[in-house]
């Protein structure tokens, strides 16, 4: 109980929270783009699994983490392409297709993992931590928070880039219009479908990257269902963050904090509070978040609605 409150403990917790939030940050920011264009992708869980598996497989084969990350992104985008084809071109229900994508992701990765890797038991070398010149020397926090691998640091860059792209570029402007008022975009002579494809591919690419981080920057092994619900949590993060990339960064960090606390308590029980309470907390928080945000009309207006061209 004593050491729960020391500065060193808090710093360690914050460092772990950032690491655990990283896959959520990528996936949630990706989903922000997708939902801003009106596409709700509940297939994120399966997409992240594909990213995690393909990233692992590519690094396993070549030894290059960079190649693994690219493979993760590519795998995510391939699933994104399937999702986009069925939801945008075929105009099928987004929830139904998302559910199918989740089944495919879990089934395919588990099938291939059991066929080729489960018996080897070998892992890959994960990305090494990098010091940041001035920040890593800060007392207490420097050691714990700024001793991360480059993938974790890159979440900040991705957040900034995503914000600029969404709010300060003509692509972003049109993208947001597609989600709110697809007909207006259509009348202005731009293709709603093309923007939606772009948004979904961007989103699933980032989800694939988030998945790949799990096997290349966090644990060094692929495990069946390694994402353990992060794809679903990312959906909740987006709502909680009110569809903003910066919001997604900080909400993910909050959820990362819950993960970190729960792991800490499993190792070091605190009084008679069962660790399951902290395990359930992110999910409970999510429900509270959608209850609080649910009534307000901040969601993109045409979210989940297929668009028929004129």
């Amino acid at each position: 109980m004593q050491d729960l409150l020391t500065l060193g403990f808090l710093a360690a917790l914050l460092g772990a929270a950032w690491r655990l939030a990283t896959p959520l940050i990528f996936a949630a920011i990706g989903e922000v783009f997708s939902e801003r264009a009106g596409i709700l992708n509940i297939g994120l869980e399966g997409t992240m699994l594909m990213g995690a598996f393909c990233g692992f497989a590519a690094t396993f084969a070549t030894g290059h983490i960079g190649l693994g990350l690219m493979a993760g992104i590519a795998a995510g985008m391939i699933f994104g392409l399937i999702f986009a084809f069925f939801t945008i071109t075929v105009k099928a229900n987004q929830i139904v297709v998302g559910a199918a994508i989740n089944l495919l992701g879990l089934g395919l990765t588990s099938f291939l993992f059991r066929t080729y890797y489960v018996s080897t038991g070998r892992g890959v070398e994960i990305a090494a931590p990098v010091r940041i010149p001035w920040l890593s020397d800060l007392p207490f926090f420097g050691q714990a928070v700024f001793r991360q691998n480059p993938i974790v640091y890159s979440t900040v860059i991705v957040t900034i880039l995503a914000t600029i792209l969404l709010y300060r570029s003509s692509f972003g402007l049109t993208l947001r219009a597609v989600g709110d008022h697809p007909k207006a975009v259509d009348v202005a002579g731009r293709s709603v479908a093309a923007y939606r494809y772009g948004a979904v591919l961007l989103g699933t690419g980032l989800a694939g990257l988030g998945g790949a981080f799990l096997t290349l920057g966090h644990s060094n092994q692929f495990v069946e269902g390694i994402t353990s619900g992060r794809g679903f949590i990312a959906l909740a993060v987006v709502i909680f963050a009110r569809w903003s990339p910066v919001g997604a960064f900080f909400v993910s960090l909050l959820f990362g904090l819950f993960y970190a606390l729960q792991l800490q308590l499993q190792a070091q029980p605190m009084g008679n509070v069962p660790y399951q309470v902290f395990q359930a907390l992110p999910y409970l928080m999510t429900i509270i978040a959608v209850v609080v945000v649910g009534g307000k009309t901040v969601a993109p207006r045409s979210l989940g609605v297929p668009y028929n061209e004129r």
């Binding site: 297709v97 199918a100 089944l103 089934g107 395919l108 588990s110 099938f111």
Partner: peptide
Amino acid sequence: PQVLVLVIQGIVILSVV
């Protein structure tokens, strides 16, 4: 691996839609 059944289910759904 029996998880193959999940892949088959996923493709069933996509074909149906």
